[in-house]
Simulated scan of single mutants.
Amino acid sequence: MSATRKSIVVVGGGAAGATITRILSSKINASTTSLTLITARPFALHLPACIRLTTTAEGKLEDDVLIPYDNLLVNGNGTIKVGRVTSIEQNKENSGSVILSTGERVHYDILVLAPGSEWDGPLAFPDDRAAVLEHIKSWRRKFENASGIILAWWWCQYAGEIKDVFPRKKVTIVHSDSQLLNSTYPNKYRKLVEKDVTSRGINIVFNDYVDNFDTIPATTRSQRQLEGDLIVPTFGGRPGTGFVKSLGSGVLNARGQIKVAPTFQIESHPNIYAIGDVIDWSEQKQAAKAPKHAQIAAANILSQLNGGSPGKQYTGQPELIIITNGKKQGTSYMGFLWGITLGNWFSSSMKGKELMVSMTRKAYGLSK
């Protein structure tokens, strides 16, 4: 190995980390640059489909939603290492090491942080494949055995999947705001989502919270008693950035997001990049944002490797969302022009029927 060979390490094999790894593997010269993807699991999880996956065994989605990394690297250019990063060491010479839970150290000259989010409830998947499969079965049993289900936050996609499988079960969403979603989206669209959800007999409790997930019957913060014997935490994800604190103060904001420049570099560490859900950027956290993040960061990394300056800058993307309500219903919003809203046919065709599983597998280099 050449003494001047540079090392790129990517932490996280989800949408953002896998995308930039695939781009870089197609661009770098293996004789001068090594590439390593470190991922906590030996497979990726396509989270939008995990909502259906944990609700029903129909279609054996686990066969397709747990996505292997076998074909991710273009021409096999790079290495996949399964492990969980616990800390980062940065040297004064703008290189360093990531330390795994096993104590193993992996050297980097350029580091990309894309650890994704940590979740609660059905989406809190373990790392081991056997444990993941048991986790899936466990939640399917919980949904099947429940007489009524309370979703503690707004995640109406879960409500729709439950109604597809168990149309007679009582389903209640408890949401802290006066409308579903958040103020990123216009009120007209938020009302449309509410109408679509309630059309299936789903009850919504606004301006309230569930604080205790273990007590049945469930009581909200305002002392409203809810009908149901299964409380499901359906909060949004939290940045999986605990290990990034080892870089020192000022790298993370108060929410645990990584502060980045428009080049996706951490300003105090110009050889470390961050992309995906974990960055401190004013936009909705969605897998659909990952390709653009990855393209810009990859271009800047390649420029830096060649002795140039990272010149590509990220300016954001239009807000788009498809909210499925089971396989056949849903609403969509596109932040173009005056704001375009679409209903069941578009939402079902684009996402609801197949949850974009085939498209996602192709992004990992698989045929379907």
Rank of each mutant, 00 (worst) to 15 (best):
S176C: 02
T86R: 14
Q317A: 10
K60N: 15
I272S: 10
M359Y: 10
Q295H: 04
R221A: 02
N306S: 13
Q329G: 14
N187C: 03
Y189M: 07
Q90Y: 03
L100I: 11
H175K: 02
S249R: 12
K191L: 13
F143M: 08
N91K: 07
N207I: 02
T54L: 09
Q225S: 13
I149R: 02
W154Y: 08
I321R: 05
S26R: 05
L47Q: 07
V278N: 12
I272D: 06
W345M: 09
G343P: 01
Y108E: 02
L35H: 13
N187S: 12
E194G: 11
T79V: 09
D70E: 14
H46F: 02
S117Q: 04
S268G: 08
W338F: 13
G148C: 07
S367M: 03
P126F: 10
F43C: 06
L192K: 12
W345Q: 15
Q157D: 04
K142N: 09
L320K: 03
N212M: 01
T86D: 07
D63C: 00
K60S: 15
I136D: 04
G76P: 07
V112R: 11
N94K: 11
K285C: 08
A130C: 05
K245W: 00
K170S: 12
V197G: 12
V197T: 15
L247I: 13
H107M: 00
R22K: 15
V171Y: 02
K292C: 01
W338E: 04
T219D: 01
L111C: 07
I110P: 00
L355D: 08
L230Y: 03
A124M: 03
H293D: 06
K328G: 00
H175S: 04
K328R: 09
S87N: 14
I322K: 05
A290D: 05
G78K: 03
L180W: 05
S2I: 09
N77R: 14
K191H: 14
W338M: 02
T86A: 09
P233V: 11
K292M: 11
A130L: 11
N187P: 01
K328Y: 03
S246W: 07
Y185G: 01
